[in-house]
Design a protein around this nucleic acid. Structure first.
Lengths: 183, 183
DNA sequence: GATTGCTATGCAACTCGTTGCATAGCAGGA
DNA sequence: TCCTGCTATGCAACGAGTTGCATAGCAATC
């Protein structure tokens, strides 16, 4: 029910095709709202039918035509009314936490495998943090003098940075704990 | 595909009925893996069919019978083999972040409503943090002298505490940013 | 010259998760 | 006395999300 809204925000920030939206979801928006291209295409067609977005056919040679979507007035109205609704509590799905508690019921070999997995996982999050920081340096070099939209994008990005830093700290704690069990 | 595993962990920690599991998911496990009672009952029946758990009918007077489930050897084997699989990257769904970016396309009244909403949301997270800290004081009063299972539960709880603290800090940043736009 | 990878869209089938509703007896408060 | 709320389980319908596959031409690499 809320993918529509994430798409509307993205299209208001900048119009684009389904494919381009899928790219953006992999990079920027997708850091806090994941979606596959399948979902995006399906929802875009429904939104067009409902008049929330408009599409413009763009012929390209050498590759398939694309449909460039823009948010329509009706879509913007839907978005602003959604913004006034209460935020629903996040539904958390943290697989690693389940595995950590599960490690109590596995043997030493299993715990060793989990340690390796946690290290790989930590490397992923380190890479994510670095990509956030690189994006921040690129897009927000000087703190002041930004319009409202940019400042809001920046505060969301800072949230991503804070999240990744917290995860990295915690994973250090997890690794210490797992190593401590072996002794 | 992983609710089964969360249930197995919970049943290995302590056997219980579907209803009791639903309660635990609201409190402990559910902090990092949410599930409704409907899902839990459905999955439990499938797991019983597959021989992952065993059920014991317990008649009670004055209220409906309950089925007390325990993890079976086959279930434990499923769990340990799952523990050795790579952790899949989390799929994040952070509605508030979408709303914050969406606020760029709303007017001053909309932003004021969002500020109120963020404050309510912050109060929720403050309550969650306090309940974690209370649980920590209750269940882990002294740091050493714990068995493996308890130490792993504790490190997961510390992750929850770190997450909530990070969120609260970030929400402070968000509120400052939102107020800054009005000026 | 063959393979891989990128842009760009889409179908079909499936699983997962949510919502609303139903039952049913007991306990406690207004 | 009525109403709300708790224990305890479940059906039915729907909506959301995933996975596998397909097309199709161009660009770059090996």
């Amino acid at each position: 029910m809320a993918l529509e809204h994430a798409i509307l925000v993205s299209l208001l920030e900048q119009p684009g095709s389904g494919y381009e939206l899928a790219r953006r979801f992999e990079r920027s928006i997708g850091r806090f709202w994941t979606a596959t291209h399948q979902q995006i295409y399906r929802v875009l067609r429904r939104m067009e039918t409902d008049g929330w977005v408009t599409a413009e056919e763009i012929g390209q040679d050498g590759r398939p035509d694309k449909r460039r979507y823009s948010a329509a007035a009706a879509g913007r109205a839907v978005l602003t009314s959604w913004l006034r609704e209460p935020v629903r509590p996040e539904t958390v799905r943290h697989e690693l936490a389940v595995k950590i508690r599960g490690a109590a019921f596995d043997d030493a070999a299993g715990r060793a495998a989990l340690i390796a997995e946690v290290e790989r996982y930590r490397a992923d999050h380190e890479a994510t943090l670095n990509s956030y920081l690189a994006g921040e340096r690129r897009d927000f070099p000087d703190a002041g003098e930004l319009d409202a939209g940019r400042r809001l994008q920046h505060v969301v990005l800072r949230g991503g940075v804070a999240y990744e830093r917290m995860v990295l700290d915690w994973l250090g704690d997890v690794l210490e704990t797992l190593h401590g069990l072996g002794r």
